[in-house]
Design a protein around this nucleic acid. Structure first.
Length: 566
RNA sequence: UGGGGAAUCGUACAACGGCAGUACGCCAGACUCUGGAUCUGGUUAUCCAGGUUCGAAUCCUGGUUCCCCAGCCA
């Protein structure tokens, strides 16, 4: 495994594995898990929970974890998704060495197993229509009815199934079914379909097959083929476990007997997690693609600037249990800040510029101020930031008529420019509509570097950018995609789309950055001092860098303002 | 109203018959050249009703609520 963060905690799944080790059922190196995505969409943070669980468990016990594509439905699956999944799991920091498999690798073996079932009288070809199968299945409270084709002879079943494979029948003409119990209280056991006819090109096997095995048949056998010991999946498959076990018990010549264990999938506040809804957001253009930084997809989080280690830390902290739960997105944001605080270099960038002229500073003078790159990391060193007579500060850092708790610049008030000088506001220039368009200030030459020799204090420190040296950039301010905690909640005639946050993206241009910000690589994260964590977007060009806000800093002033509003 | 699951601070996860704890959030304070970070303190929980026990979140009985299942999806 490529990554090893904090020691993993304990949970009911690890408890089961420990018990299996203690009882001698397995040796530690035999512990074998797998992450089995269907390549029909992009991976999201919910998948990350499963990825971390499976890979970390294997690593913790000294075993292995496979990557396996569950690609048994060619009508929904595409190579684009396969490629994105490989990229995302790697990016998260995990390595499956040579153990990347596809369920489609097993089509021939699965077919042989099906033949074995037929020969043993445990499976039959059913020629009911899909609609008839549904009616014969019965309901929650009424048992099903045996298919009229249930007692076909082995010879006839073999003949029909072979001809299904050869392509002699159209879609839907026949299916292969397990012969279990049409009266079972578990609907999954009422002669479930094992194979269906699908005249469809598969992204890996092409036109070789026109019958495809169902999940319930494929999954347990694939697990067995790969000697998976603990097959971890989500709660909705709990009902399928008897069928999973049935397949393992009745298929011939299986090398091992994996165990299915179910856990609760991740839900996050202020977002949706279902593949269907994420696909809809992309297809209908509510976001700009699968990797839109507002999406909970791995690729979206990556573009947003969220470090993989933060996602891993998050998955570690949310725990694993069987209770349906919705984790507060604030925990994810905390993990992102925690990681970025330690690693992100600091820069100054003014998002909503307000010009300041320092009247007593020489017009042609430029000084280079030494700035600390990261106070949390002494090894990150320092850099020089140019300072001159005309600078930009943040518009929100000035108030003409400040309330009591506002510490920043105001007429007559002195504040510090970070790493530079103390300045005092001496004048306010407005346009004809009364808006403040420029400030006049004076500086105290004795405060160079940001400290007053006489020991006087200021209550605020502002970030700034020299106007003459400023780099104009586009900044994309991202916020939560939905305006309510639970966009999935069913409401009167409303869909989740009605709860999209109209302010989830605000684009700012021009923002003024210190020159060093022109040299960031695409994807690189940094902190804009006092504003938040940002990363360079791939849309950046040489003359117009683009930065995405990953997450803001904790903001005490915003909270004070909020309280004033309440 | 059949079957399968789950109920612990606001949220998530622990406690596995013996002081209900941790993290996030929130509140207050200290410190600070980022109203950041850091530090300190505080806040609030065992679904309900019985029972067993010296002792129950944990075991038993009965209820309640929530989630999943009637694809030739996974």
């Amino acid at each position: 495994m490529a990554v090893q963060d904090e020691p993993a905690g304990s949970d009911f799944i690890r408890d089961i594995i420990k018990a299996d080790l203690d009882s001698g059922k397995y040796t530690p190196q035999a512990v074998h898990t797998r992450f089995p995505p269907e390549p029909n969409g992009y991976l999201h943070i919910g998948h990350a929970k499963s990825i971390c669980l499976n890979f970390n468990i294997a690593a913790q016990f000294g075993g292995l974890c496979n990557l396996r594509f569950d690609d048994t439905n060619p009508s929904k699956e595409e190579v684009e998704y396969v490629e994105s999944i490989i990229r995302d799991v790697r990016w998260l920091g995990y390595d499956w060495q040579e153990r990347m498999f596809y369920a489609s690798d097993y089509f021939e073996r699965l077919y042989e197993c099906a033949l074995g079932l037929i020969r043993a009288g445990k499976a039959y070809v059913c020629s009911l229509s899909p609609d008839e199968i549904r009616r014969y299945r019965g309901t929650f409270t009424e048992p099903g009815t045996n298919s009229p084709y249930r007692e076909r002879s082995v010879a006839e079943n073999l003949d029909l199934f072979e001809r299904m494979r050869k392509g002699e029948f159209p879609n839907g003409a026949h299916v292969l079914r397990a012969k279990i119990d049409m009266a079972s209280a578990n609907l999954n056991m009422r002669d479930p379909v094992l194979y269906r006819i699908l005249h469809e090109s598969h992204h890996r096997t092409g036109e070789v097959w026109c019958i495809y095995p169902m999940y319930d048949f494929t999954h347990p056998l694939s697990d067995a083929f790969e000697a998976i010991t603990h097959s971890i999946c989500t709660l909705e498959f709990e009902d399928h476990r008897p069928l999973y076990d049935w397949a393992l018990e009745n298929a011939e010549n299986l090398p091992t007997r994996p165990q299915q264990i179910e856990f609760a999938r991740l839900n996050l506040t202020y977002t949706v997690m279902s593949k269907r809804k994420l696909l809809q957001l992309v297809r209908e253009g509510h976001v700009h693609g699968w990797d839109d930084p507002r999406m909970p997809t791995i690729s979206g989080l990556r573009r947003r600037g969220c470090p993989p280690a933060a996602i891993r830390a998050f998955c570690d902290r949310i725990g694993v249990a069987k209770k349906d739960s919705t984790v507060d997105v604030a925990l994810l944001e905390h993990c992102v800040r925690e990681k970025l605080n330690k690693t992100a270099s600091r820069y100054m960038a003014v998002l909503r510029p307000l010009k300041v002229v320092i009247e007593n500073y020489p017009a042609d003078q430029v000084e280079h101020m030494q700035a600390v790159n990261n106070p949390e990391d002494a090894a990150s060193g320092t850099r020089q930031v140019p300072f001159s007579r005309e600078i930009y500060i943040e518009r929100e850092d000035f108030m003409e008529d400040p309330p009591k708790k506002f510490f920043r610049l105001a007429p007559g008030r002195e504040v510090r420019l970070r790493y530079a000088y103390f300045i005092t506001c001496t004048g306010v220039i407005k346009n004809e509509s009364g808006e403040v368009v420029e400030l006049r200030c004076t500086y105290d030459p004795a405060t160079r570097g940001g400290d007053a020799p006489d020991g006087r204090k200021v209550k605020a420190t502002l970030h700034w950018v020299s106007a003459a040296h400023a780099l104009a950039a586009e900044v994309r301010l991202y916020d939560r995609l939905f305006s309510v905690e639970d966009p999935d909640r069913d409401g009167a005639g409303e869909s989740f789309l009605d709860r999209l946050n109209p302010d989830s993206l605000e684009t700012l241009y021009p923002c003024f950055c210190e020159p060093a910000l022109g040299f960031l690589d695409s994807g690189q994260c940094c902190q804009f001092e006092r504003m938040g964590y940002f990363c360079a977007d791939p849309d950046s060009t040489a003359d117009r860098p683009v930065f995405n806000r990953t997450v803001g800093l904790r903001d005490a002033w915003a909270r004070i303002q909020q309280k004033g509003t309440d």
